[in-house]
């Protein structure tokens, strides 16, 4: 792969052709927030948190490949506020009860809200009616918290190639459904993987809740993205 030159917020960066904007930024110590994206998974581009501006147009940084001479705007006030709005919309669009959620402190949506100092969403709460599915031995699915990132759909696949999670309906009615039989047959490691890959508290591994005390959780003392920016 040949090196190509791009700029991010005016800073000259070297990227490899074939990299996405998010990957190239990361390799150069620049954080572009992601929520639906996960290293190693094929990008889905569903959440748009990684929106950047290239040549005056908004693009999803996780799906757009870099090209020679690209000038990328990342941290401008306009883009940062747009990202904050997306976070706020996700908070009002579901039922996100941080105080009672087992994922609190390890939740990427919450961590993004901390990073963007969300004191209150600017949009009215929608209080949708969502289902909780708890009839499998290892996992429960609380759809109140789902942000439809599709990470679980892409990652949690049985050894014989079957999807444990799948999308039902489309648009505003989209929900993630779990195949109860396949979920029951998941190994302990794979069940834990399902919880860990979920950026929110939608997929929860039973019987391990609140194991890590407050103060020691993933995002208690360090903002999300600081591991990339600190390099």
């Amino acid at each position: 792969m040949s090196d190509i030159k791009i700029t991010i917020d005016g800073k000259e960066c070297t990227a490899k052709s074939g990299q996405t904007i998010v990957e190239a930024a990361k390799a150069n110590g620049i954080y572009i927030p992601v929520l639906c994206h996960f290293d190693g998974l094929k990008p889905a581009g569903t959440c748009r948190i990684c929106t950047v501006k290239v040549g005056g147009r908004f693009m999803a940084g996780c799906t757009t490949p870099v090209a020679e001479g690209m000038r990328i705007d990342n941290m401008t006030p306009e883009i940062e506020d747009m990202r904050k709005q997306i976070i706020e919309m996700l908070f009002v669009e579901g039922n996100h009860m941080c105080p009672v959620c087992e994922k609190s402190g390890n939740c990427e949506l919450q961590a993004l809200a901390y990073r963007y100092k969300m004191m209150v969403p600017r949009f009215p709460f929608l209080w949708p009616k969502r289902e909780v599915v708890a009839n499998t031995p290892k996992l429960y699915l609380d759809k109140n918290r789902c942000v439809q990132c599709l990470r679980c759909v892409r990652e949690i696949i049985t050894t014989d190639g079957k999807n444990v999670f799948a999308v039902k309906e489309r648009g505003g009615k989209t929900t993630i459904n779990m195949d109860e039989k396949l979920a029951a047959g998941l190994s302990d490691d794979m069940a834990m993987r399902a919880m860990d890959i979920c950026p929110v508290g939608c997929i929860i591994r039973k019987e391990v809740g609140y194991k890590v005390p407050i103060g020691q959780r993933k995002f208690d003392s360090k903002p999300i993205g600081s591991e990339i920016e600190g390099r």
Binding site: N95, M97, P99, V100, V120, P121, F125, K129, R130
Partner: peptide
């Protein structure tokens, strides 16, 4: 000033909203 999650987003009591 709204102090705390319940004032800001309903909090635990709002779990009855559905």
């Amino acid at each position: 000033i709204s102090l705390g999650e319940c004032a800001i987003m309903g909090g635990l009591p709002a779990m009855r909203n559905g």
